[in-house]
Amino acid sequence: MFEARLVQGSLLKKVMEAIKDLLNEASFDCAHSGILLQAMDNSHVSLVSLNLRKEGFDKYRCDRNIVMGMNLTSMSKILKCASNDDIITMKAQDSADTVTFVFESPNQEKVSEYEMKLMNLDQDQLGIPETEYCCIIKLPSGEFARICRDLSQFGESIVISCTKEGVKFSAAGDIGTANIKLAQTGTVDKEEDAVIVDMQEPVTLTFSCKYLNMFTKATPLSPQVCLSMSPDVPLVVEYKIGEIGHIRYYLAPRIGD
């Protein structure tokens, strides 16, 4: 028996918004310690890694490890039926071919149940090595989304350049060029407004606008985003999911431009 109950059901709705444009389907690996999801987008350019720890759930039970292959378009349709303040429970029998979503209104007066068919997915699991990154940049997630959106008007790629002074985002195309520099912030009233650069070596890498913009669909999950970069390795874009876990997007840098 698998059962995971989340009083803050809106988090699960936001997680779905953060992955559904990138992935058509994905396997949810449910184990004693929590739920993991790892999947590449259709073009195999980026990788999504989602981690939801059992401690973050209000109730979590997983007697045996189960892998639930889900069509994310279908799951997204179902989660759209949950209100933002609903309590969401996911449950499945050990060898079931369906998963059930239960939505309870806060006052328990409305309870909705949706059963969804599971899929057998044959997806490659990739081992992501522990990496020491040369540059780790923390910035407000809304600011990062705004920068990606603004720069995508100029070209298909964004150059991210990190030095000890701060971080620079640039794009160039037919209409001209754009450069946005963010300096490290001094003292800020709210921690989430800070721009923090932890740099060992300066790094400049070029990434696809299209994918960065898809990652920013996770913005509602967290006020801050963390970018980790090293030369010639994938960028990591990480959003914390409340106290429950995180979503990380890995994106291969562009080469040869």
Binding site: S43, V45, Q125, G127, S208, P234, A252, R254
Partner: peptide, 14 residues
Amino acid sequence: PFQQRKINSFFRKV
């Protein structure tokens, strides 16, 4: 102009 590398060229299958 530029080429996009695949993500699975960086990580090994497990």
